[in-house]
Measured scan of single mutants.
Amino acid sequence: MPVRRGHVAPQNTFLDTIIRKFEGQSRKFIIANARVENCAVIYCNDGFCELCGYSRAEVMQRPCTCDFLHGPRTQRRAAAQIAQALLGAEERKVEIAFYRKDGSCFLCLVDVVPVKNEDGAVIMFILNFEVVMEKDMVGSPAHDTNHRGPPTSWLAPGRAKTFRLKLPALLALTARESSVRSGGAGGAGAPGAVVVDVDLTPAAPSSESLALDEVTAMDNHVAGLGPAEERRALVGPGSPPRSAPGQLPSPRAHSLNPDASGSSCSLARTRSRESCASVRRASSADDIEAMRAGVLPPPPRHASTGAMHPLRSGLLNSTSDSDLVRYRTISKIPQITLNFVDLKGDPFLASPTSDREIIAPKIKERTHNVTEKVTQVLSLGADVLPEYKLQAPRIHRWTILHYSPFKAVWDWLILLLVIYTAVFTPYSAAFLLKETEEGPPATECGYACQPLAVVDLIVDIMFIVDILINFRTTYVNANEEVVSHPGRIAVHYFKGWFLIDMVAAIPFDLLI
């Protein structure tokens, strides 16, 4: 008679799926529990143990900040960024110097990925580790590398530091407007667009060049630039800015003055950032001319202004700041037409079709709590990747769950009947059967004279019903998954307890 339990259901295979997918890609990662103190490590794979030199037993239950890997060259700011990422709910990448158990130093890129439950609360953290440099290539500990984003994938490793954006290309926007319009339909740009040429040739750093990471940081200074100062900065030398009595002219307006920039070969870094931020506020060169004239017309309804409409929906549905990093990277690809469009465009503009998908598509409701890094690593669709929660398995109709209350009560009843059979069957065979043979035949009273025979008949009927119930009862397979398919249940029961239950259900007393 089957006594099969499996009270692990309803099970959740999400954690096993993450481990299996990460292991298949030869990654070095740990999984931490966000619900406990210090976000203790609950799993670390073999790749991480080989990377740091510690065994799994030495890593388990330690804080996922990996303070046991810190050393003299470990930056405090990087460690603080990892700790801050564990307090938030967004994906974050941090470069930090770690030390192995043998004392060797290596520069590592740590990717902190939160995993949320159905309520939107962070319950786990996945920390992925990628070695960037070994100890002989690690720089000085005073050099802070965590304020910069990861290198873009479309640049060669040897040319990542030679990417320079020439400031004269930004200063000569109005001069290039006529050349853009003359391109017409034969050019790649839309009317009114501004073409910015980027020099990728390796050259020595000069005062006129600005690194790509500095251009990325310009967006942080746009908020500090007032509207009046932006307007004066875009007017140009024809209309000098008016300053109040006793007030000095704005240095932001002076930063885009061609006369002032041409007199000296070098520009201050602050002026460069502010000038680029001011130019980015204009949607095209037409807006710059309109600002000089004193009238700013409404933005025209053409394809170039609607190019950012799908980007707005993608940004609203993005799951991490990696989408913004990807957008900034692609927006700086050289030799393309940049349409400086305000994100607050007309909502009635139709979304044009684009061959290049900048932001990841909208994630469906079932995966809105899973970050983009987890979705990318697992390579699963929205119909396959579940949320991290207890999910009731989908069972067929008329199927009994093996952990249901009805099955528990039924098993206790069958257990009592088995005990009765084990006690009274030998007793009936030894004593009652002998008395029946010696006594007179009682054929007239039937079952009324033999109450134990009636009980034995009921017990046999219950055993037959138990066999039928076992054909529709779920079970737990070797992978700790609840199986509810009727065919698989029948095959599993035939290979197991079916023969024993059938022999126990045969009414031998009635056959004798």
Rank of each mutant, 00 (worst) to 15 (best):
A185Y: 09
V341G: 15
V341C: 13
T201C: 08
T353S: 10
S255D: 05
R27T: 13
T371P: 04
R77L: 13
G103P: 01
K21E: 13
G103Q: 07
P141M: 14
I18C: 06
I123G: 07
L15P: 05
A193D: 12
R328D: 13
A80D: 08
E214Q: 06
A350D: 09
P249M: 11
T337V: 07
I333S: 11
C52M: 09
G306W: 03
F48I: 01
L349A: 09
K116H: 14
L378C: 05
L225S: 01
D111Y: 06
H302W: 15
Q247K: 06
A282T: 05
E274F: 06
S320Q: 11
Q61L: 12
T371E: 01
A282H: 14
A185F: 06
T174Y: 06
C265G: 11
K362R: 13
A97R: 14
A185K: 09
T371G: 07
S182N: 07
Q247C: 10
G246S: 10
S206P: 15
R292F: 03
S275D: 11
I19P: 01
V196E: 01
R176L: 06
I359C: 07
R56W: 01
S179M: 06
A282F: 08
R356G: 10
A78Q: 05
E91F: 09
P245K: 03
R4D: 13
L155H: 11
G6C: 11
R312P: 14
E58W: 09
P2R: 05
D199R: 01
A85Q: 01
L173T: 15
D16P: 15
D219E: 06
R92D: 08
A204G: 06
A285L: 12
P251D: 13
A253Q: 08
K21M: 08
R252Q: 08
I30F: 01
P352K: 03
H143F: 05
A293C: 12
R35A: 06
I123W: 11
P241N: 15
G120R: 14
P249I: 11
P151H: 12
A244N: 14
G6P: 06
G306D: 10
T216D: 06
H143A: 09
A34I: 03
S272E: 14
L51H: 01
P227V: 09
V325Q: 14
R252K: 13
I330F: 12
N33A: 07
D346R: 08
M308H: 05
